[in-house]
Design a protein around this nucleic acid. Structure first.
Lengths: 140, 140
DNA sequence: AGAATCCCTATAGCCACTATAGAGTCAAGA
DNA sequence: TCTTGACTCTATAGTGGCTATAGGGATTCT
């Protein structure tokens, strides 16, 4: 069974352009071509595309996905590297969460400086955004 | 008092290229030039640069910052729009936090499928990443 | 036969920078 | 005076992960 790019994209839940992009980036092998030069994907190539999309839905980078695909080519080796990769990705996600939490607190502090019923020149939010450190949004 | 681009950048805590980029994007006016064609920034222009950097440190888009700069030009008008802009930005940050929290949970579920002491072909993490929905990382 | 839908390549755009190449300017030291 | 080195200039390309467009060819439906 073989699939044209539109079918493959639909099965994997992405756009046609995205499939071609993955091929260009070396995440998908160049597939067979029909007489009319259309790409023809095998079942296992569609599965590989779905694998990539699943990883992307977990926000992994294409570089990380490339590594995972390489792991798949060595089925008898240890999977410790896979676990490590996931652990590092979780760390990365948690770092971003921490950063966003700090950011939210700073934004809330800033927001609390004004009720929105002033003139712009007396708005303490704008004042808080000037270069002057005396108006900082640090916790307080 | 006037500052060359390097001094302005240092005062605002960014790179020289970034300052030129802001000028190109219309966030900073084209400054005066020296005889040798060097950019010369006034105090208020350096303050504007610092304002931009402060907003960027709160992860606002250049588009949002452009709006804030326009508000600053109408000091006697109501500041309601500023408050709204900040509120929307907070909403945006919170959406990203929610998305990351879900993501972390999915990654943890995936990670818990394996201890890292298997072979790659039997690693349940890789299995969980295939296109097959029977190995999904949904809560469970 | 014609229209609609698919597919092809190549290229540019998104965001907020960052980096590079190749040249010019300027202040301080020998 | 000459040179060195730090600074500056413009223009252009690269980052990541796509998305969109132009301008064509293939296939399929009616």
């Amino acid at each position: 069974m073989s699939y044209k790019i539109g079918e493959a994209a639909r099965l994997a839940g992405c756009k046609v352009e995205t499939v071609r992009y993955y091929e260009q980036m070396g995440l998908l092998p160049a597939p067979a071509r029909s007489e009319g030069n259309f790409r023809l994907y095998s079942d296992s190539q569609v599965e590989q595309l779905s694998f990539i999309r699943h990883c992307r839905s977990l926000d992994m980078s294409l570089e990380n996905i490339r590594e995972l695909l390489q792991f798949r080519e060595m089925p008898s080796k240890s999977c410790a590297g896979i676990n490590q990769l996931i652990d590092e990705h979780i760390d990365c996600v948690e770092s971003r969460m921490d950063a966003l939490q700090q950011l939210r607190q700073q934004l809330r502090n800033l927001r609390n400086r004004c009720s929105g019923e002033r003139s712009i020149e007396s708005c303490k939010i704008l004042h808080g955004l000037t270069g002057c450190p005396c108006h900082s949004t640090e916790a307080g």
